[in-house]
């Protein structure tokens, strides 16, 4: 018998079912936890750590951690948000993120996350300014790996949904980078219709479709009008959350 139970997120009682992760329970209740590597339709892997919450005092990734009855979870607090800001800042500094010249600008999840988290502080970290390869071999897509944030979404989509292995990581630590299964993208089995190459898989401007350019005018792009995560917050509305203080 599957019974629902309650988890307590920042003082709000959230219903959860056995088998749900903390993020799934919060999503269903209209409570958005920031995330970059997790995307609808792919198995979560908890690698970007942007969804980190404190679950009974322990830092865990909300996208992989099962919700447990009566768990006390810290999520939208200054300390957790500072942690998230640091992670997203490091991603922005690790690659080359020249947003004014990037076709993903306005629909990029990394950029939108930085807006949501309010990243404007003066730089404490150096920009690493890597010189990673740009692969324009394929007739349909360009890969600019200087913008890759190592979310593995393309790797998982290719493996899980397309039954291919077009993408993989090579190297370790700071030298880790995205590689393709061949000398160039054009030598791989990547083709039109692949889930890995579809809109919304690459959260940034690393996998770019050729021939589109800056097709959506500024002001009408995905994150021009609303913050990332608002679609989840608006889905079921947070007003119907019962806060324990109110009870």
């Amino acid at each position: 018998m599957s019974t629902t139970f309650t988890i307590h997120v920042d003082g709000a009682a959230i219903p959860a079912r056995p088998g749900q992760t903390i993020m799934e329970a919060c999503d269903a209740a209209g409570l958005y936890i920031p995330r970059l590597c997790d995307v609808e339709g792919l198995a979560p892997q908890g690698s970007c750590r942007v969804c980190t919450v404190r679950d009974n005092g322990r830092c865990v990734s909300a996208c992989t951690q099962p919700a447990m009855p009566e768990a006390v979870i810290e999520h939208d607090t200054e300390s957790m948000n500072r942690y998230r800001r640091d992670l997203v800042t490091m991603l922005l500094h690790e690659g080359n993120h020249l947003c004014p010249g990037c076709e993903a600008s306005g629909r990029c999840e990394l950029q939108a996350m930085a807006y949501r988290l309010g990243i404007t502080d003066s730089n404490r970290l150096p920009y690493l300014q890597p010189v990673r390869p740009l692969d324009a071999s394929h007739p349909l897509w360009v890969l600019d790996t200087n913008r890759c944030i190592f979310c593995s979404r393309c790797i998982r989509a290719s493996r899980e949904q397309d039954g291919k292995n077009v993408f993989e990581y090579v190297g370790r630590g700071i030298h880790k980078r995205l590689a393709v299964n061949g000398n160039h993208l054009a030598d791989t089995s990547a083709q039109e219709g692949d889930h890995a190459m579809s809109d919304g898989i690459c959260p940034v401007g690393c996998i770019i479709r050729k021939g589109e350019g800056f097709s959506t005018p500024i002001g009408q792009r995905r994150f021009d009008k609303h913050l990332i995560g608002e679609e989840i917050e608006n889905k079921s509305g947070r007003s119907d959350l019962s806060t324990e203080e109110a009870q």
């Binding site: 807006y115 990243i119 404007t120 913050l227």
Partner: peptide, 11 residues
């Protein structure tokens, strides 16, 4: 000085 998110843009 903290800018609200809707005024933060990188482009």
């Amino acid at each position: 000085l903290d800018l609200p998110p809707e005024l933060i843009r990188y482009d």
